[in-house]
Design a protein around this nucleic acid. Structure first.
Lengths: 230, 230
DNA sequence: CGCGAGCTTGACGTTGTTCAACTAGAGTGG
DNA sequence: CCACTCTAGTTGAACAACGTCAAGCTCGCG
């Protein structure tokens, strides 16, 4: 699995930083004047799959999960941290929300009018380029997760998610997990009971330690190895 | 699984048509002068995962498979028909090929210089918008396949692929399959033996008929039902 | 103190993979 | 024109991985 690790499994924390830096003051105002800022509490649904879309979302603070739902099935496509866009798929073309977005921590979301974003794309090519960068980077991450969930066994998949949470979402070996076992299951494409068993395996092998909602990665090299062998 | 079927599992045959219509003659020439057209035979590798990228590819004719490889694992991300771009992820940002592309039929590929595409993005916003449309549509298709391969059982997955091949790639209920059992396995995330068994099941249930490389879909409604229940 | 949701555990069943043997067909050289 | 080989396809049996089910547990909260 070595080659794929060139691409990170998760997003970098601040990868939208540049896209606002390239805006002039006027352009920044255009954004600010065409956005609504809304506070969501943990557990609240921000976007419901299938609803009509007129806005691009920007996560100012907090943490959300992006998921596909159908019947009993539930797949978490990604976890988005602050300073990331959601719904970039709707800039041109498809104008329905393809996925559901739910806050997993208290979050502040900017709803930006799509036409304002289009205007900036039109008039500022650096901004445009940054959006491409974000969008295509997101593509590559999706491919990588796609590969993980379809080609690796449970332990490999769970190792991937742990590494992602540690290195990309929380930037620490020790963090409080805001996800339920069911969420972890939806994130790794397995049954919640399997999540529990794998956590137990990792604990008996001293790869991780847990205390309540807190998780600490003790043996990252081994975790990487498990990720690589699948 | 009903909601997801709003999005097609595969690409429409001609979804890049508009993006060239919006170009002026000068702009079209810019593309033409900055492209190299190369013929590939069936089985030849067009792009190797991990190599450096300086071009955007456009499939003028033929059929290719786009896949991720790592160790023994092999996942086909998509099948691309003529008039589709490949490697749009490389427009800005990441400049390595994230995936391998192999011709599954004799194909003609245009290698377009990335800087030429960037130039057109800069100067023609309609072209830019069309590229967004293609890129984000491709995203949604990937999500859909992601869901299929992670949430559905073998029969559901295979039904998805058959429907895609019939409705989007070949536009016919009857077509010659240019894919080996191994390819079909890589496309559906299962073992080649499982592919064989499912084809057999579908044949005994009169859902499909096969003769050599030829496949005919006899009972599409049932196939859709199998796709929906997973 | 008791209730309920989420978590945990073990036993069990199913799904899908692996392995090994076999077959069919396509290309090759005598 | 016929062995010969090589690869792709096929089959069945054994096995492993994973999900399902049911029961019990924990902990926060009213």
């Amino acid at each position: 699995m070595a080659v794929l690790s060139q691409i990170n499994h998760c997003e970098d924390g601040e990868d939208t930083g540049n896209c606002f830096k390239v805006l002039t003051e006027n352009e920044m105002n255009l954004l600010v004047n065409n956005r609504t800022e809304i506070q969501f509490n943990k557990g609240e649904t921000i976007i419901k799959q299938g609803t009509k879309s007129t806005d691009i979302l920007y996560l100012k603070s907090g943490l959300v999960k992006v998921s596909l739902n159908s019947g009993e099935s539930n797949l978490i496509l990604s976890i988005k941290t602050k300073n990331h866009f959601i719904g970039l798929e709707n800039i041109y073309g498809y104008d329905y929300h393809a996925y559901t977005v739910v806050a997993i921590e208290d979050s502040v979301i900017c709803f930006i009018d799509t036409s304002a974003v289009r205007q900036l794309i039109k008039q500022n090519n650096n901004f445009n380029a940054e959006l491409y960068r974000i969008l295509t980077n997101n593509n590559l991450l999706t491919y990588n997760r796609f590969f993980s969930l379809t080609q690796k066994q449970l332990h490999g998949r769970f190792a991937d998610v742990l590494l992602c949470l540690s290195n990309k979402i929380f930037n620490s070996k020790k963090f409080d997990l805001p996800l339920s076992r069911k969420d972890l299951a939806a994130l790794t494409g397995m049954a919640p009971e399997s999540v529990i068993r794998i956590i137990k395996d990792f604990k008996t092998d001293k790869i991780i330690a847990t205390k309540g909602k807190n998780i600490e990665i003790l043996n990252e090299p081994l975790l990487r190895k498990i990720s690589n062998v699948g």
